[in-house]
Design a protein around this nucleic acid. Sequence first.
DNA 1: ATTGCGCTACACCGTTGGGGTGAGATGAGA
DNA 2: TCTCATCTCACCCCAACGGTGTAGCGCAAT
Lengths: 214, 214
Amino acid sequence: MSIRLLIAEHQRLFRQSLRVLLARERDLIVVAEAADGREAFDLAMRHKPDLVLMDIDMPNLDGVTTTKLLRGCLPNTKVLLLAIHDEDTRIVTALQAGAFGYILMNVDQADLLHIIRAAYQGEHVLSPSMPDRFARHALAAVRQTGGDSHTLLSRLTDREREILACAAAGWSNKEISDHLYVSVDTVKTHLHHIYQKLCVDGRVEAILAFLQTK
Amino acid sequence: MSIRLLIAEHQRLFRQSLRVLLARERDLIVVAEAADGREAFDLAMRHKPDLVLMDIDMPNLDGVTTTKLLRGCLPNTKVLLLAIHDEDTRIVTALQAGAFGYILMNVDQADLLHIIRAAYQGEHVLSPSMPDRFARHALAAVRQTGGDSHTLLSRLTDREREILACAAAGWSNKEISDHLYVSVDTVKTHLHHIYQKLCVDGRVEAILAFLQTK
DNA sequence: ATTGCGCTACACCGTTGGGGTGAGATGAGA
DNA sequence: TCTCATCTCACCCCAACGGTGTAGCGCAAT
């Protein structure tokens, strides 16, 4: 069984090189490339990859936010974030947001492949060379995420979380209904329930609540 | 000249204690207390304090997001964030978001007063006892913020930034117009310009763009 | 078998938001 | 002085959104 990958990286050359590198492996299939967060979300929604390899530093939608959105829509898709600096504090934030792991840019290609395969199997293999202090935070974050805390969002059904994530991505009700193959009315019904459950008043407040969950 | 303060802290007892502590000082005036981020934003918009003392960990709107909103609406109001842990990575994020400084909860009251007064004068005095690695990040973040980078947001006028921040706080056009004492049509006109300048399609995308600026 | 939940869909209706256009007031700067 | 940017307001039109209620279907728990 092969691993279906989505690459999200805004540097075109790096993105394409990465694709070539990964595509050489028999068990890896790169289903799509995205140049920014918005495109990554769109393509992920369309292809539902097993794994998303995502640059943490992207235009339109940053890696952390995109990770949150994907976690809401595709709980089975794991996100591995690419970070340049080993002390980027966003790594911790991202792991809290539901990223499955992170990879430092200066990782060896063999290690990269190892991390990807391990992640697919459900193993958390963090990039080495991360300073101790960060590593502790990171691991704590990952463990925490495993124990799915009781946030307001946990009151939502899977479908509702999915729709809320789409709304948070900036999609209109019509766009959501098109992508999820339901009617606009259904989307509205779900949103109505979401507003009630989150005790918020309207779309924007619901989105804020969604984006602020750790 | 006295310093007008807003306290935003969700622990009621701590908030009130803090108020008493600060109110004893002749040069400090606590203009309001807020129990969460949303209230902090509302009250700050009403009172326009010189300084906001804000818990980084609040419901409804977290400290970092609230800081971003306040930066957009009240450029002259400085935000000092209260953090419990000296290794909270959100501190760095917050400083990048435009917080003027941070204060660790275990700070001495004399130091707190010193930091407040120094901040009012425009001096960056960070809480001591922060690990070196974080301190470096923090200082870099502060310095970076000083040099107002060329983000998309810099294309907006002050008024437009203000209105966008209000929208990002979840306010409707009517609510924005009420708070800023203009007509709803004016708000709509500004938003229209904002969408064009940011090259986005609609309110939610504009808000996302706003919230993702560092 | 009955109950409950989640997902779906539809109708009605009022409010809000967005696009387009125009235009007056102000203040800074060439 | 004239120009330009900014802020403000108004009007129209239409699409989108929000609130409420109703209802059928499938599924799992009891």
